[in-house]
Design a protein around this nucleic acid. Structure first.
Lengths: 336, 336
DNA sequence: TTGTATGCGTTATCAC
DNA sequence: GTGATAACGCATACAA
């Protein structure tokens, strides 16, 4: 069921049919109707592969994100990024392919993503793993030669365009707030500094300490690479021994573990230990007390990043644009 | 940078190069090395569109799911389904395209998903909207002529293959449990019966009542079509006037709204009102009290569905297979 | 307003 | 073990 058959059926040429279908040159009303009828009857669908080969365009972009274990809120965060991006792409007539890689898993390395190698996509939205340029990111970036926009997580020492939240400022303001409500020994529990978001949150914590005149105490800082409740509990256990009165959590699962633990040993929040987190999920309003956090908008981030990628694909924007989105403080009760 | 150039460089024919690259017929060691070197030097990548046109195969499948507002746990659920499916597809050498549609939004109807019309994908994993066969699903299903497997939500009166959780049984057992711990007036708050999962949960509730000899009271049932905390609160407010002592929630956001409200008016859980929910999220262990739920495994569901689709694509499985996955009860404190 | 003819890059058939 | 070449379905330059 090719364009040729439609041509034969209508007694027209393939050129006329093609033009009629794509609206790329004038076609008489009569021919148009003939063609439409034939298409209707045969259920003809243009062959995507042929079109793509001929035009060298696919109208497809890819978004590559890390995947975590099931039931992890990080997945929900990235889903919202995807949906925000996808919405923007669809408005521009682009389709989106979602690919995921497993953090820390060599077997799921980016360069295995076959589609990218095959010139199927016209551009890539990429959430990298490490802050430093490493081989995984390298291969994805250099082997494709495609327009790329980094999302959520930065890579240092590159000219790649990127869109990310101002994690440092968001945490800095939160920690200063904890200090302003009278807390003297503020601990920090978060992810590894190899990931830019975790790194920036750590930097924000340090900046805040400096600005409020607190000394930096390494015993109050725990940077872990696995986000489980159990780890959150263990960190909290150790920190309690340090005589702290507040903890800032750079990850919400660690925060959950801490809350569960504190509740189990009847340490009151925020009276005994104040708590703040990052990101904002519905459940943070259901706990006792409700949790105060630093918020970033994943949907918006995806949308902005998609727009930037589209602009770069279409040559409308420089390919080293950096967009830093502000964070908001969502204040409830746990920080008081 | 085509296969022809590699042929020219090596002094071989395109046939030999193609076969060497695909391992589809014996090639001398010498030629092989020559070709590998040329590929290395030129950075040659096979053209996906050309391959696809020639072979009529893309090794791509699509998964179509509904998207909800940002920060909704439903998104996290479907993400896990995606990841489970994607993992299975990747193992089989297939790539996955993720497409989303907005529930209730005419503008995002399935038939707008261009990729499906263009014979890009070889099969579709589909989470439909309504229980009844309607035009949206219709167009997606009938227009493509592709192998399709329904996931999570059923469509009635079709022979389509599907994979879904036994929502009815999961809820039935939960409600009977609530009765067994002494609750006499058990209310039910969930989604609209137009969606199969909500419908089945409702059926499960009704079955349980019958089995335990409770009368069905329409005043104790609230089926809403919007999942917000506010709605959850409103439902709870009305139900409290009915003198209930337990509520089963078919949706976790509604449950959150209820908990927030009950806490705010100092109604104790579970002493005054027992509560159970559906799905299991980490935060359900952090609230006071911890929440008991009916659990389904989204990752597993995606994996099973992907396997079924692959089997159907490869003709190894009948195209009307139905797989119903059991639910588990995750018991904590809110149901006591 | 329409038609003819070419080539995109690959695979696969047939012949050697 | 290898090569020449047709064909996949489309868009488009050129011609009428």
């Amino acid at each position: 069921m090719s364009i040729r058959e439609i041509a034969k059926m209508t007694g027209l040429s393939t050129a006329t049919v093609s033009h009629a279908l794509n609206g790329t040159r004038r076609v008489s009303q009569k021919s148009l109707e003939l063609i439409q009828k034939a298409v209707e009857e045969t259920g003809y669908k243009p062959n995507f592969a042929a079109q793509m080969m001929r035009t060298n365009r696919s109208n497809i972009v890819a978004i590559i994100i890390p995947e975590t274990k099931p039931n992890n809120s990080t997945n929900g965060f990235f889903f919202d990024v995807i949906v925000g991006a996808r919405t923007a792409f669809q408005k521009a007539g682009y389709n989106t392919i979602v690919a995921t890689y497993i953090e820390n898993d060599e077997d799921s390395r980016i360069d295995k993503i076959i589609l990218l190698k095959k010139q199927l996509v016209e551009g890539i939205l990429f959430v990298p793993y490490r802050r430093e340029l490493n081989d995984v990111a390298d291969s994805a970036i250099q082997n494709t030669g495609l327009p790329i926009v980094l999302v959520d997580r930065r890579i240092e020492n590159t000219d790649l365009p990127m869109v990310y939240a101002d994690n440092a400022d968001g945490v800095c303001r939160a920690v200063k707030l904890l200090a302003s409500t009278g807390h003297k020994r503020i601990a920090f529990v978060s992810g590894p500094t190899t990931i830019s978001t975790s790194y920036d949150r750590y930097i924000g914590y340090c900046q805040a300490l400096k600005q409020i005149g607190h000394a930096y105490d390494p015993d109050l800082v725990m940077l872990v690479s696995t986000y489980t409740k159990e780890i959150g509990k263990e960190c909290t256990e150790k920190l309690l021994a340090q005589g702290i009165d507040a903890i800032y959590f750079g990850n919400d699962v660690l925060l959950m573990g801490a809350m569960e633990y504190l509740q189990s040993i009847h340490v009151r929040i925020p009276e005994d230990i104040a708590i703040m987190g990052f990101d904002d999920y519905d459940w943070m309003g259901v706990t006792t007390p409700k949790i105060s956090t630093t918020y970033q908008d994943p949907w918006h981030m995806g949308e902005i990043a998609a727009g930037l990628l589209l602009d770069i694909i279409q040559g409308k924007e420089k390919d080293d644009t950096v967009i830093r989105l502000p964070c908001e403080l969502h204040l409830r009760q746990s920080h008081l």
